[in-house]
Simulated scan of single mutants.
Amino acid sequence: MNKNSIRLATAIAAILAAPIVTATETGVELGAGVTYVMFDDDFNVADDIGYRGLLGYRVNERFGMELVLDGISTETDPLGLSFDMRQLYVSGLYHFNVEANVQPYVSLGWGQNSMELADSSFDNDTTATNLGAGIKWYLKDNLILRPAINYFMNTEYDEDFTTVGLTLSWVVGGGSSAAPKAKAPVAPADSDNDGVTDSSDTCPATPAGVGVSANGCPLDTDNDGVSDYLDKCPNTAAKLKVDSNGCPVKLSETVSIDLNVNFDSNSDVVKPAYYGEIGRVAEFLQQYVGTSVVIEGHTDTSGSASYNKNLSQRRADAVAAVLVQQMGVSQARVSAMGYGEEQPIADESTATGRKANRRVVAKVSAKVESMEEK
């Protein structure tokens, strides 16, 4: 190699060694391979295979630069004289498809070559500009297989030549990896980790583990305004008011019903006409579970007090029997008490008053809770 080539190589090496502010994808590339040189016909030199050495630097994802040394030993055509050529050139590279493992690139370079013809005083150096294209195939993060083609245009000669090379190179130093990696997609923010992104989350502070609807708000299955995770009464009817626990608001009230069955004089037979009245008592008892009824029997003052006491008890027992046997009320919820003539409600001096006093009254009184509606 002559002095001009040495100076060129030294200058290019200094450029490659200079500190450069780069993106994250950087690295020094060392490679070796083969090159096939194809000369123009006017060169009168046979095409042949030679060697290739490479020193490169990946500046960033898109740009790189490299120093390449090619050498070939062939012969002239048709004389068969030994012909040697060595060339050293520097190129700038632009890469495509940088997020993939296979990255095409184009290059533009300039350098110097030296040609020697055996048994001849011919020994000449020339500069050349070249255009190239190739592929970097990342077999691993730091191992690259590189096919490439370059077209060289000589400055001192009209004849040009083309090289087709195959290089295996190794990336050292620089960023975390010589091969640019596919960028992981950035997941939309979800501050409360409920599966609904912040941009769509109407309730951005939902506690962890709580089931949410499409807008990120806690579920409220019974639509009572209290979220399921706070609702202690999860199946409340829609029409009822609820408290902070999702349970119906209860109202306490006292309810009662009165029954009046009148009897003929000296009779304890319940007339069918009063069955509807007794039925109302049965319905009331069914509505308010846990209540009980006391059937009170009363008479007028006709007859002796002891007789009337007994008669009133029979009348009370007769009505109680209708409730149990005809209306299906549990015996345990029905009791009877005869008061005789002790509690009149009308004047005994008239027939109308005495009839009013011959009666049976049902006393039901209970304190119950009801649900307040919206």
Rank of each mutant, 00 (worst) to 15 (best):
229 Y>W: 11
20 I>H: 10
323 L>E: 07
328 G>F: 05
282 A>K: 07
259 L>G: 07
178 A>D: 00
120 S>V: 03
133 A>I: 14
188 P>C: 00
336 A>M: 04
46 A>D: 13
14 A>P: 02
290 G>C: 11
153 M>D: 10
154 N>Q: 14
13 A>N: 08
132 G>C: 02
357 N>Y: 09
174 G>R: 09
366 A>D: 14
231 D>T: 04
53 G>A: 13
370 S>N: 12
167 T>Q: 14
267 S>N: 10
121 S>G: 09
214 A>V: 15
208 A>V: 11
195 G>M: 04
85 M>D: 09
185 P>V: 03
160 D>M: 03
363 K>C: 00
325 Q>T: 15
125 D>G: 14
76 T>H: 02
8 L>Q: 12
55 L>K: 02
296 E>K: 15
107 S>P: 03
47 D>W: 04
345 I>R: 07
115 M>I: 10
238 A>C: 02
22 T>D: 01
372 E>F: 01
223 N>Y: 02
81 L>C: 02
374 K>P: 01
71 G>S: 12
354 R>T: 15
144 I>M: 13
159 E>Y: 06
35 T>Y: 07
260 N>K: 10
30 L>E: 06
302 S>T: 13
258 D>C: 00
159 E>S: 15
167 T>P: 04
315 R>D: 05
202 T>P: 01
41 D>A: 13
314 R>Q: 15
245 N>P: 01
114 S>E: 13
59 V>S: 09
162 T>H: 02
58 R>A: 05
202 T>G: 08
305 A>P: 01
99 E>I: 02
21 V>Y: 11
311 L>N: 06
79 L>A: 14
122 F>S: 00
203 C>S: 11
62 R>T: 15
190 D>V: 03
125 D>P: 02
14 A>N: 07
268 D>P: 05
195 G>N: 07
227 S>T: 13
97 N>K: 09
236 T>L: 02
234 P>R: 03
293 V>Q: 09
316 A>W: 00
242 V>Y: 03
186 V>A: 12
33 G>V: 09
202 T>M: 10
152 F>Y: 15
85 M>K: 11
215 N>M: 06
218 P>G: 04
328 G>N: 10
117 L>S: 06
6 I>Y: 06
291 T>L: 08
297 G>Q: 05
230 L>W: 07
51 Y>N: 15
58 R>V: 00
189 A>R: 09
36 Y>G: 04
54 L>W: 07
172 V>L: 11
26 T>P: 00
92 G>P: 09
51 Y>L: 15
366 A>S: 12
86 R>M: 07
4 N>W: 05
286 Q>T: 12
147 P>L: 06
48 D>K: 02
286 Q>L: 10
108 L>Y: 01
82 S>I: 04
128 A>L: 08
6 I>G: 02
274 Y>Q: 01
189 A>Q: 08
372 E>M: 09
322 V>T: 07
306 S>T: 14
60 N>S: 11
212 V>E: 07
59 V>T: 10
